[in-house]
Deep mutational scan, measured.
Amino acid sequence: MKATFQVPSITCNHCVDKIEKFVGEIEGVSFIDVSVEKKSVVVEFDAPATQDLIKEALLDAGQEVV
């Protein structure tokens, strides 16, 4: 499964690193693409990962998800 999250609070590479760390810890996540320019995060994943778990990880990383 693939999901795109709009994350307007992404401003720098530190944000990218933190997002990759938090989302990458979720079992089932196979790909993460964070774009500072587009302020988006694209995640490819399989169970047990879910969109809700990914959104929670983004929030835990200090990001706003819309």
Rank of each mutant, 00 (worst) to 15 (best):
residue 1 M to F: 07
residue 1 M to N: 13
residue 1 M to E: 08
residue 1 M to A: 09
residue 2 K to G: 04
residue 2 K to R: 12
residue 3 A to L: 13
residue 3 A to H: 08
residue 3 A to F: 07
residue 3 A to G: 07
residue 3 A to E: 10
residue 3 A to N: 06
residue 3 A to D: 09
residue 4 T to Q: 11
residue 4 T to G: 07
residue 4 T to A: 08
residue 4 T to L: 13
residue 4 T to I: 14
residue 5 F to I: 06
residue 5 F to Y: 07
residue 5 F to D: 07
residue 6 Q to F: 15
residue 6 Q to A: 08
residue 6 Q to C: 15
residue 6 Q to K: 10
residue 7 V to F: 07
residue 7 V to Q: 03
residue 7 V to S: 02
residue 7 V to Y: 02
residue 7 V to M: 05
residue 7 V to G: 04
residue 8 P to M: 08
residue 8 P to R: 10
residue 8 P to T: 10
residue 8 P to N: 10
residue 8 P to G: 10
residue 9 S to N: 10
residue 9 S to P: 04
residue 9 S to Q: 06
residue 9 S to L: 08
residue 10 I to K: 00
residue 10 I to M: 07
residue 10 I to E: 04
residue 10 I to F: 06
residue 10 I to P: 02
residue 10 I to C: 14
residue 10 I to W: 11
residue 11 T to L: 09
residue 11 T to F: 15
residue 11 T to M: 15
residue 11 T to H: 15
residue 11 T to Q: 11
residue 11 T to Y: 15
residue 12 C to F: 08
residue 12 C to S: 14
residue 12 C to L: 08
residue 12 C to H: 12
residue 12 C to D: 13
residue 12 C to A: 12
residue 12 C to Q: 11
residue 13 N to M: 14
residue 13 N to S: 13
residue 13 N to Y: 10
residue 13 N to Q: 15
residue 14 H to W: 10
residue 14 H to E: 15
residue 14 H to L: 15
residue 15 C to V: 12
residue 15 C to N: 10
residue 15 C to G: 09
residue 16 V to W: 08
residue 16 V to Q: 05
residue 16 V to D: 04
residue 17 D to C: 09
residue 17 D to K: 14
residue 18 K to G: 04
residue 18 K to A: 10
residue 18 K to H: 06
residue 18 K to Q: 09
residue 19 I to H: 00
residue 19 I to A: 00
residue 19 I to M: 03
residue 19 I to W: 03
residue 19 I to R: 00
residue 20 E to V: 15
residue 20 E to I: 15
residue 20 E to R: 14
residue 20 E to H: 14
residue 20 E to F: 15
residue 20 E to N: 15
residue 20 E to D: 05
residue 20 E to W: 12
residue 20 E to Y: 15
residue 20 E to M: 15
residue 21 K to I: 07
residue 21 K to P: 02
residue 21 K to M: 08
residue 21 K to F: 11
residue 22 F to P: 03
residue 23 V to C: 03
residue 24 G to R: 11
residue 25 E to L: 14
residue 25 E to S: 13
residue 25 E to D: 11
residue 25 E to W: 08
residue 26 I to C: 03
residue 26 I to H: 00
residue 26 I to N: 01
residue 27 E to A: 10
residue 27 E to S: 07
residue 27 E to K: 11
residue 27 E to Y: 06
residue 27 E to C: 06
residue 28 G to W: 01
residue 28 G to D: 02
residue 28 G to N: 03
residue 28 G to P: 00
residue 29 V to L: 03
residue 29 V to T: 03
residue 29 V to C: 04
residue 30 S to G: 06
residue 30 S to D: 04
residue 30 S to V: 13
residue 30 S to K: 14
residue 30 S to Y: 13
residue 30 S to E: 06
residue 31 F to P: 02
residue 31 F to S: 11
residue 31 F to I: 08
residue 31 F to A: 10
residue 31 F to M: 07
residue 31 F to N: 10
residue 32 I to P: 01
residue 32 I to N: 01
residue 32 I to Y: 00
residue 32 I to F: 01
residue 32 I to C: 04
residue 32 I to R: 00
residue 32 I to H: 00
residue 32 I to E: 01
residue 33 D to I: 11
residue 33 D to C: 15
residue 33 D to H: 14
residue 33 D to E: 14
residue 33 D to Q: 12
residue 33 D to T: 12
residue 34 V to G: 02
residue 34 V to F: 05
residue 34 V to I: 10
residue 34 V to D: 02
residue 34 V to Y: 03
residue 35 S to M: 05
residue 35 S to E: 04
residue 35 S to I: 07
residue 35 S to D: 12
residue 35 S to A: 04
residue 35 S to G: 04
residue 35 S to H: 06
residue 35 S to L: 06
residue 36 V to Q: 05
residue 36 V to Y: 06
residue 36 V to P: 05
residue 37 E to G: 06
residue 37 E to V: 10
residue 37 E to Y: 05
residue 37 E to I: 10
residue 37 E to R: 08
residue 38 K to P: 02
residue 38 K to I: 04
residue 38 K to D: 10
residue 38 K to M: 12
residue 38 K to H: 13
residue 38 K to V: 05
residue 39 K to G: 10
residue 39 K to Y: 04
residue 39 K to S: 07
residue 39 K to D: 04
residue 40 S to M: 15
residue 40 S to H: 11
residue 40 S to G: 03
residue 40 S to E: 13
residue 40 S to I: 14
residue 40 S to Y: 13
residue 41 V to C: 04
residue 41 V to N: 00
residue 41 V to W: 00
residue 41 V to F: 03
residue 41 V to M: 04
residue 41 V to K: 00
residue 41 V to S: 01
residue 42 V to F: 13
residue 42 V to S: 09
residue 42 V to H: 11
residue 42 V to W: 08
residue 42 V to G: 04
residue 43 V to N: 01
residue 43 V to M: 01
residue 43 V to L: 03
residue 44 E to D: 05
residue 44 E to I: 14
residue 44 E to R: 11
residue 45 F to I: 02
residue 45 F to D: 01
residue 45 F to H: 02
residue 45 F to Y: 14
residue 45 F to N: 00
residue 45 F to C: 03
residue 45 F to T: 01
residue 46 D to S: 13
residue 46 D to L: 07
residue 47 A to D: 06
residue 47 A to L: 13
residue 47 A to Q: 06
residue 47 A to H: 13
residue 48 P to R: 02
residue 48 P to M: 01
residue 48 P to G: 01
residue 48 P to A: 02
residue 48 P to S: 02
residue 48 P to Y: 00
residue 48 P to I: 03
residue 49 A to L: 02
residue 49 A to Y: 03
residue 49 A to D: 02
residue 50 T to S: 06
residue 50 T to E: 00
residue 50 T to Q: 02
residue 50 T to W: 03
residue 50 T to G: 03
residue 50 T to H: 04
residue 50 T to K: 02
residue 50 T to A: 03
residue 51 Q to D: 07
residue 51 Q to A: 14
residue 51 Q to E: 14
residue 51 Q to C: 15
residue 51 Q to T: 14
residue 51 Q to N: 07
residue 51 Q to W: 15
residue 52 D to R: 11
residue 52 D to E: 13
residue 52 D to L: 09
residue 52 D to P: 05
residue 52 D to W: 08
residue 52 D to Y: 07
residue 52 D to H: 10
residue 52 D to A: 12
residue 53 L to S: 08
residue 53 L to G: 05
residue 53 L to P: 00
residue 54 I to P: 00
residue 54 I to W: 01
residue 55 K to S: 05
residue 55 K to M: 14
residue 55 K to R: 14
residue 55 K to H: 12
residue 55 K to E: 08
residue 56 E to I: 12
residue 56 E to P: 00
residue 57 A to K: 07
residue 57 A to G: 05
residue 57 A to E: 01
residue 57 A to I: 04
residue 57 A to M: 04
residue 58 L to A: 01
residue 58 L to D: 02
residue 58 L to W: 02
residue 59 L to G: 06
residue 59 L to A: 08
residue 59 L to M: 11
residue 59 L to N: 07
residue 59 L to Y: 08
residue 59 L to D: 04
residue 59 L to I: 13
residue 60 D to G: 10
residue 60 D to E: 13
residue 60 D to L: 14
residue 60 D to C: 12
residue 60 D to F: 12
residue 61 A to R: 02
residue 61 A to S: 06
residue 61 A to W: 08
residue 62 G to F: 13
residue 62 G to W: 12
residue 62 G to R: 04
residue 62 G to I: 13
residue 62 G to P: 03
residue 62 G to A: 08
residue 62 G to M: 13
residue 63 Q to F: 15
residue 63 Q to L: 15
residue 63 Q to A: 09
residue 63 Q to I: 13
residue 63 Q to W: 14
residue 63 Q to Y: 15
residue 63 Q to P: 03
residue 63 Q to R: 07
residue 63 Q to E: 05
residue 63 Q to N: 06
residue 64 E to I: 15
residue 64 E to C: 15
residue 64 E to P: 06
residue 64 E to R: 10
residue 64 E to D: 11
residue 64 E to V: 15
residue 65 V to R: 05
residue 65 V to H: 06
residue 65 V to K: 05
residue 65 V to G: 06
residue 65 V to C: 15
residue 65 V to F: 07
residue 66 V to F: 05
residue 66 V to P: 06
